[in-house]
Simulated scan of single mutants.
Amino acid sequence: MINPTPHIDPAPQKAPAAYEGETANGAATYSSRDLFRDKTEIRIEHQGEMYRLRITRSGGLLLNK
């Protein structure tokens, strides 16, 4: 009898690594370049609510619910 090949899930997506040594009061620091990659908007799910974080034309950040 041939055993079926076990199903292997791909590795889960990891959040970008925080910069080492740049944490204050337990807060991690991330590069917006790592978060956005080649996009101008990302979505953040927080406590069941969806938020949009986008880079504005002038290069700022805008967070909307």
Rank of each mutant, 00 (worst) to 15 (best):
M1C: 07
M1V: 15
M1G: 13
N3Y: 07
N3K: 14
P4H: 06
P4R: 04
P4E: 14
T5F: 10
T5Y: 08
P6W: 00
H7W: 09
H7K: 08
H7I: 13
I8P: 00
I8L: 06
I8Q: 04
I8F: 10
D9L: 15
D9A: 15
D9S: 11
P10Q: 13
P10C: 05
P10V: 04
A11E: 12
Q13M: 15
Q13N: 11
Q13C: 04
K14W: 03
K14G: 11
A15M: 10
A15V: 08
A15W: 04
A15D: 09
A17W: 00
A17P: 04
A18R: 00
A18Y: 01
A18N: 03
A18M: 03
A18E: 10
Y19S: 13
E20V: 12
E20C: 00
E20L: 06
G21L: 05
G21F: 05
G21A: 07
E22G: 10
E22R: 10
E22N: 14
T23N: 05
A24E: 04
A24R: 06
A24L: 05
A24S: 02
A24V: 02
N25M: 05
G26Y: 03
G26P: 01
G26R: 03
A27W: 11
A27L: 11
A28V: 12
A28G: 14
T29C: 12
T29H: 12
T29N: 14
Y30T: 01
Y30K: 03
Y30F: 14
Y30L: 15
Y30H: 10
S31Y: 07
S31D: 11
S31I: 10
S31F: 11
S31M: 04
S32N: 12
S32P: 10
R33L: 08
R33Q: 09
R33W: 07
D34E: 11
L35F: 02
L35G: 00
F36H: 06
F36G: 01
R37T: 09
R37P: 01
R37C: 03
D38P: 01
D38Y: 08
D38S: 06
D38N: 13
K39M: 11
T40F: 11
T40C: 02
T40I: 06
T40K: 12
E41K: 15
I42M: 08
I42Q: 08
I42R: 06
R43C: 09
I44G: 03
I44E: 03
I44Y: 11
I44C: 05
H46L: 10
H46P: 00
H46D: 13
H46V: 11
H46F: 13
Q47D: 04
G48H: 05
G48E: 03
G48L: 00
G48Q: 00
E49S: 05
E49L: 02
M50H: 12
M50Y: 04
Y51R: 05
Y51K: 08
Y51W: 13
R52K: 12
L53C: 13
L53M: 15
R54I: 05
R54L: 12
I55S: 02
I55V: 15
T56Q: 01
T56K: 02
R57W: 14
R57N: 14
S58K: 09
S58T: 15
S58H: 09
S58M: 12
G59C: 11
G59A: 02
G59W: 13
G60L: 09
G60V: 07
G60M: 07
G60W: 05
L61T: 04
L62Y: 08
L63H: 10
L63W: 02
L63N: 04
N64Q: 10
N64L: 15
N64A: 09
N64P: 00
K65G: 03
